[in-house]
Amino acid sequence: MTIPPDSPQSLRASSLAPGEEKPKTHDEPPSGQLPGELLMWVLILSEITVFGAGLLAFLSVRLTDPTGFAEAQSHLHRTGAAANTLVLVTSGWLAALATRAAEAGQRRRLRLLLAVAIGFGAVFLILKGTEYADLWAQGIGTETHAFYTFSYLLTGFHAAHVLAGMVLLALVGWLGTPKAVETGAAFWHMVDLVWVLLFPVVYLL
């Protein structure tokens, strides 16, 4: 069968680098195989394990002083953290759309989507920075209470991942290949995934 040069199939094929396999889209039927880069999945599993262990340690230490942990938690910005959940899931959505745009060979669209996703990452960091600034203004540091030792460590480590993800999204946007964009978006979704586990444990329970 001949594919017309301006058809979506042709556009998709034209966006592939020589030797690059066509990435599997998320709307294709199940194949049983992990989508994307295997190494990225190893990283995702590692990050879930590290943050999961940190959150389990946090909850274990909380058993020794539940009242102190509850009082310390009341100084955090719950509303800002809840807003940050919306910010990250929206940013993840844009990254997912960018992956589809990359598969369709729409470089301009994928770059625009990733730029806005990066912008949402910046909003996340601004809200997080506002919380840190407020805590420091109250004289609250990592040594003030065990709660803060854990919360600064866990949320700070996560924020570092957000920053790294923003750099990675910019890089894959510049490269513009479907495989690169899918890999960068997968890292970004991992950052999102860790946050939805971290947020209720540190801010709500």
Binding site: K24, H26, S31, Q33, L34, G36, V89, W93, A96, M190
Partner: peptide, 14 residues
């Protein structure tokens, strides 16, 4: 997030 953003819908076992 795993199913739809990360695309594990194509790998139900995973």
């Amino acid at each position: 997030i795993l199913r739809d953003y990360l695309g594990l819908v194509v790998a139900p076992g995973w």
